[in-house]
Design a protein around this nucleic acid. Structure first.
Lengths: 197, 197
DNA sequence: AACAGACCTGACCAACCAGTCAAGTTTAAA
DNA sequence: TTTAAACTTGACTGGTTGGTCAGGTCTGTT
């Protein structure tokens, strides 16, 4: 049974942890920082979660489904180009709406994904293999320009997540402008040309 | 005056530091780890470098020029499409040859580029602004399909560096295969289609 | 109001980590 | 071979950090 207070505080902790972990990485983040952002004391954090690891694990677990949802939504029965473009658009929207989540994953993967190995080698790989097969099917049926399915997926990840993950760099280069200004149009045009063949 | 031993040990330290910093980030790396990889004692590291910061700074300084070289080599007097494709190829080659360097930068930028602010807002921005102007010139002269210069450059970075930075993820999904197998062909085809208009 | 359980915290601890230092060993030039 | 400078290190220090705990306060139920 979870109380009203538990719900509120767990949410506060996870939100603060997302702030700090995504900006500093697991090792760089401290419980004191997370506690300060959450507006709670450090021992109180550890009243709700067993350890720093446990907070991080809870974050990743909660996020994984959200993160995979856009790819999962790709419909094998739909129009190939429309389905892929819809996926691209959903991913771009996620970079805009959830940059912290993107950076949390990026930090993790960049450092060898020690805490995501099971999820990536399991669920994620299965999903990608599945959707890659769908794309290969579309190509084989002549409904799509010939394209390597895995690299197509990787390139969608690379382009969409770049805007969230390298936000600091883009800001410094583009100045005050919204870092994603024009990004959607560019990326969509790019993939349209790729899929047109 | 630098002795033979100084030269060898500084090189050993920087190579070990590149290993450790690129895999763990600045905060995650410890001098003990770097010392162990370098095969030297921790006090000995600090005999050659003033601090952990100083090692990191030396790495970044040494790398920046190498990192910017491919873009710098883009020749305004050359053939637009050939110049851009040559840049793409050089960047891909760097992802393959220097993945640790790519991850070192990625770690840094991901965490807000605190130690690279000057370099990014200075040299890098100036170079990108310059080359973006060149690309806009090519477009204006009708020598290149209309394309946003900044986003074109960002997309080249995103796609090429993704293979180095997210290597762990790609390995887990693609298994034993070389993570970059087919990447060159895919990325080159992609940009050829983008530039063809 | 009284009670039980949930919630919260100051003070503390052990491990870790960057950096110091005094005292050694090695190197190379004379 | 001598010698001075260059190099190396075990032992240490002070600060940080994840985590504990005893004892407190708050909350909701009867």
């Amino acid at each position: 049974m979870t109380t009203r207070i538990q719900k509120r505080n767990r949410r506060k902790i996870l939100d603060a942890a997302l702030d700090v972990f995504s900006a500093q990485g697991f090792r760089g983040a401290t419980l004191d920082q997370i506690a300060a952002v959450a507006g709670l004391s450090k021992p109180n954090l550890l009243y709700y979660f067993d350890s720093k690891e446990a907070i991080h694990r809870a974050l990743l677990e909660g996020l994984l489904e959200v993160w995979l949802a856009p790819l999962r939504a790709m419909n094998p029965a739909g129009d190939p180009r429309a389905e892929i473009m819809a996926y691209v658009r959903r991913k771009l929207q996620m970079s805009r709406d959830y940059p912290r989540e993107s950076r949390l994953f990026a930090n993790e993967v960049l450092q060898g994904a020690p805490r995501l190995e099971d999820a990536i080698a399991g669920d994620l790989k299965a999903l990608v293999d599945d959707k890659a097969a769908v794309i290969r099917g579309w190509v084989a049926a002549g409904k799509l320009a010939p394209v390597d399915a895995y690299h197509l997926i990787f390139s969608i990840w690379a382009l969409t997540q770049h805007y969230a993950d390298f936000d600091a760099q883009i800001r410094m280069i583009r100045g005050a402008r919204d870092p994603m200004d024009g990004a959607e149009a560019f990326v969509e045009t790019l993939f349209e040309r790729v899929l047109r063949g």
